[in-house]
């Protein structure tokens, strides 16, 4: 039992618990909270894995950004806090079987793969594991991005730029998609068909 193991245990438990919570809770709000816990714990796992940069990104982008966005979506689309959408019993049972099968298959693979790649924590000569320390990964990652630091000499600038542009396009598109449909809002007394037509007109205009 090392400190890393202990911390891993804590974080892994939190992550798995959060994930299970996401899957199990019916309330979207609770799911969101579970997701926050899960993702934060995964960020902790990243810190344990000597990847503070990734962890920080996970926190700031995922937890601080994406999940807030999701909660925002919940707020905008959910009629009430307690409202739940039920699914059928048969579906639940079949889903349970599928989940067990999937978990078994993945677990079996994970154990097999873990055996194949033994990768033990790195200790120094005094037996103190340096896992919990925060190594300087920022500069290596940055240099790797530029294709300067690593041995391979292959940078990630092009993917980075592609992803940047992609992100920009996606965000513009998202903003456009989610913009307020004023005509629909302005005519509440119109019958549903008309409303739908108006909306589809709007879609047609987009096309």
């Amino acid at each position: 039992m090392t400190g890393a193991d202990a911390l891993f245990g804590v974080f892994a438990a939190l992550a798995c618990g959060g994930a299970l919570g996401v899957a199990a809770f019916r309330s979207v709000a609770r799911m969101a909270f579970s997701l926050v816990v899960c993702l934060s714990a995964v960020a902790g796992l990243f810190f344990l894995l000597n990847a503070p940069m990734v962890g920080a990104t996970q926190l700031i982008v995922y937890v601080g950004g994406t999940v807030v966005l999701l909660i925002f979506g919940v707020m905008l689309t959910d009629a009430g806090v307690g409202r739940r959408m039920k699914i059928g019993l048969l579906e639940t049972i079949s889903m349970t079987f599928i989940a067990i099968g999937l978990a078994a298959a993945l677990g079996w693979t994970a154990v097999g793969l873990g055996r194949a790649i033994p990768g033990a924590p790195v200790l120094d000569e005094e037996g103190v594991e340096i896992v919990a320390a925060t190594p300087d990964t920022l500069r290596p990652i940055g240099l790797k991005f530029l294709g300067l630091g690593g041995e391979s000499g292959v940078g990630f600038l092009l993917p980075f730029e592609i992803i940047s542009v992609h992100l920009l396009v996606v965000l513009i598109g998202a903003a456009y998609l989610a913009r307020a449909k004023r005509r629909v809002d302005a005519t509440p007394e119109t019958p549903p068909e008309a409303t739908r037509e108006t909306a589809s007109d709007g879609l047609g205009e987009q096309a």
Binding site: I98, A99, G101, L102, A104, A105, L106, W108, T109
Partner: peptide, 20 residues
């Protein structure tokens, strides 16, 4: 959507079983 995902997962499980 959900049926599709479930079918996907079931297929994955089936493939895994097949592989095993």
């Amino acid at each position: 959507l959900r049926q599709y995902v479930a079918a996907l997962a079931a297929c994955a499980v089936g493939l895994a079983v097949l592989a095993v």
